[in-house]
Design a protein around this nucleic acid. Structure first.
Lengths: 144, 144
DNA sequence: CGTCTAAATAGAAATTATTTTCATTTATTC
DNA sequence: GAATAAATGAAAATAATTTCTATTTAGACG
């Protein structure tokens, strides 16, 4: 199984302690984190750690597909570890911030529809599904 | 046919000259505009016009469903007039910034899928489709 | 048509997320 | 163990958006 160092080598990124730590933090988080939250955790592990380093690495890792982004309705950005390399989308729980993969993408059909009705070409799409996961609704529903 | 003043009354918003102007600017734009771009046009029409007024009104109008938002991949926000009151999504051309309605939403299916596989409840979704419209690809393709 | 009141606004300042710059450090290559 | 390109820290810059507050104005009412 590939460890974090191998993942970075594949992306042609140097294996620095900080990069590994960021990956590690996200891997263990199980929920999505803001850059600032990642920074806060990094400061517990490193004496000197700049916020730009966090931002830079999160973007690089996301560009490499190792981690994914959540765009909130308020357009704030969050990141989480996602091992799934296939094209897919996510369901994010706005209560506990857990992320689940959706093995479902209507993009193909949309592409056809766009091509057929507008004669246009689709280049990218943003898709984010928000809601309340089963754990959180159980908490509130009291059925526990 | 409802004019802009009627639309504002329905939303219980006062019919101020500036609000009408913002609506008018978007209605005539045919492409999506940034708050700053709306402000620039407003400054040509009003001696005194504050940027917060533009932001406030755009949000109010969007909340009322009279105008719609485009969230770009860089997470910048744009607005455009959209008369379609049904739930739908948009195709936006990143070249000329024209917006077309997509009479297509896979949201129902996603909701079912989320419910079935995750036992979770969907509350909202962001969906944005970017591409090149037929006019723009004709320009580039040289088929004109 | 004047008066009243809540809503709307201007202008300035504050906030906040994010990015840039650049000198210094460090991981990798040989 | 050098050499070199990549990575980093710290500070500053940027830019979108929001807040604050005193003033103005639209719409209701008489």
């Amino acid at each position: 199984m590939k460890d974090h160092s191998d993942i970075l080598k594949e992306l042609e990124l140097k294996t620095t302690p900080k990069r590994l730590a960021i990956l590690d933090i996200l891997r263990n988080a199980s929920i999505y984190l803001s850059p600032d939250e990642v920074w806060t955790t990094m400061k517990e592990r490193f004496r000197a750690i700049g916020l730009p380093t966090v931002y830079r690495n999160l973007e690089e890792l996301a560009a490499g597909g190792v981690i994914s982004k959540v765009i909130h309705p308020d357009r704030k950005l969050y990141y989480f570890f996602c091992g799934n390399r296939e094209h897919h989308h996510h369901f994010v729980c706005t209560s506990c911030r857990k992320v689940d993969d959706l093995n479902f993408c209507a993009f193909g059909e949309i592409e056809k529809e766009v091509s057929r009705t507008l004669n246009a070409t689709v280049s990218s799409h943003i898709m984010q599904v928000f809601g309340i996961c089963s754990d959180c609704s159980a908490d509130k529903g009291g059925r526990q």
